[in-house]
């Protein structure tokens, strides 16, 4: 009872990376709280899935295996989870901040009248003293996220309500096998007894899962542009440099909002989190929401006309100047001097 629960997301018959990342984080939180780590996985043809989850630290795996649970639909998934949470009374429930997790978690929080924090970048255990009621709370989940357009970082707590729910962005937490030999317990959920027709009023008619053509998450070098690039045309410079270096092109939210680059290239809090060995930031001012998605880059080069751009403070190299001047010189030198 009162364990940590992770919702395991299935995507193209595979466990989503973000779910394994949450297991790794959940395991370390569970150790701190001296409780178990439990996983709930819903879908169809899930035979044997528990074995993969055990080695990431799951002590208990709840499986709901039914054709009607795949593809994902809000109502049946939330119904099974709310039923399980009501019985098991978790202290913490974690979801990926994905299309699915952000659709599902609020529905559960509303049904259970408990607090939920979206898009956390960090989770910690801590205490809280409430002056008004002279109450001390221990072992609370600190849910840490950038807020308010990235101008502040807020630590959110839910002192009174359980479970404490949070969604976490993909790629923000590390994914590590806990122990290849770790074994847990499998618990099958009889979902059939929970469902009625009203749970299936929304039907999936068709679906194109487009694997991202651009793979900025896996790129070793990223050339990223911000609003300061100025136009979609100017972004071509970034593509030129990326092509020469074998890099991918990324963009800040401001650049995507301005239509300079496609949404799938967005890096940061509301986009993808990346950890390349080299990050070249072109005309990016560096709001925290952007930095949240690239701060673990091994090396950062910032090219910006504004010497005071916040991103310069985390850059290894700061080139104060125009990208239209700088990038062609970089390309020229590289072409001449690399094999």
């Amino acid at each position: 009872m009162n364990n940590i629960f992770v919702y395991c997301e299935i995507e193209d018959r595979e466990i989503a990376d973000v779910s394994l990342e949450l297991l790794t984080k959940g395991k370390s939180l569970a150790k701190q709280l001296a409780c178990k780590l439990e996983v709930i996985v819903l879908g169809s043809d899930l035979n044997g899935i528990e074995n993969k989850l055990y080695k990431y630290g799951a002590d208990v795996v709840h499986v709901g295996d039914d054709k009607r649970l795949s593809p994902y639909l809000t109502l049946p998934h939330s119904k099974v989870i709310v039923d399980l949470f009501t019985k098991e009374k978790p202290q913490v429930g974690l979801f990926g901040a994905t299309s699915i997790g952000r659709d599902l978690a609020p529905r559960i929080a509303s049904a259970m009248k408990c607090g939920l924090t979206a898009d956390c970048t960090s989770l910690e255990i801590g205490e809280h003293y409430e002056k008004k009621t002279d109450t001390k709370y221990e072992n609370l989940l600190y849910q840490i996220r950038p807020a308010f357009g990235g101008n502040i970082v807020a630590t959110i707590i839910n002192p009174e309500t359980r479970p404490q729910l949070a969604t976490v962005r993909e790629g923000v937490m590390k994914m590590e096998v806990f122990d290849e030999a770790h074994k847990g317990e499998l618990k099958k959920i009889n979902v059939d007894e929970l469902f009625d027709d009203a749970d299936f009023v929304v039907k999936v008619i068709e679906r194109h899962i487009e694997n991202k053509k651009v793979n900025i998450k896996g790129a070793g070098i990223i050339v990223a542009g911000g609003y300061g690039v100025g136009s979609k045309e100017n972004f071509k410079l970034l593509y030129d440099l990326a092509e020469v270096l074998g890099a991918e092109v990324g963009a800040s939210r401001a650049a995507v909002d301005a239509g300079f680059a496609e949404h799938e290239r967005q890096i940061g809090q509301t986009g993808v989190t990346v950890r390349p060995k080299l990050y070249i930031a072109c005309g990016i001012s560096g709001q925290i929401q952007h930095r949240a998605g690239m701060t673990e880059s091994s090396m950062v080069i910032s090219i910006n006309t504004d010497e005071k751009a916040p991103i310069n403070q985390i850059a290894d190299y700061v080139i104060t100047g125009d990208i239209a001047v700088t990038i062609p010189k970089m390309i020229k030198y590289y072409k001449k001097n690399s094999k």
Partner: peptide, 30 residues
């Protein structure tokens, strides 16, 4: 149910960065 425990204004950890200009010698060196 959610309470704001703490708000931090965003302060960047300054890191030692090398300052360069877009002049040829700087770019070539980099």
């Amino acid at each position: 149910p959610t309470k704001v425990k703490k708000i931090e204004n965003v302060v960047f950890k300054a890191k030692e960065s090398k300052k360069l200009t877009p002049l040829d010698e700087d770019i070539d060196m980099l």
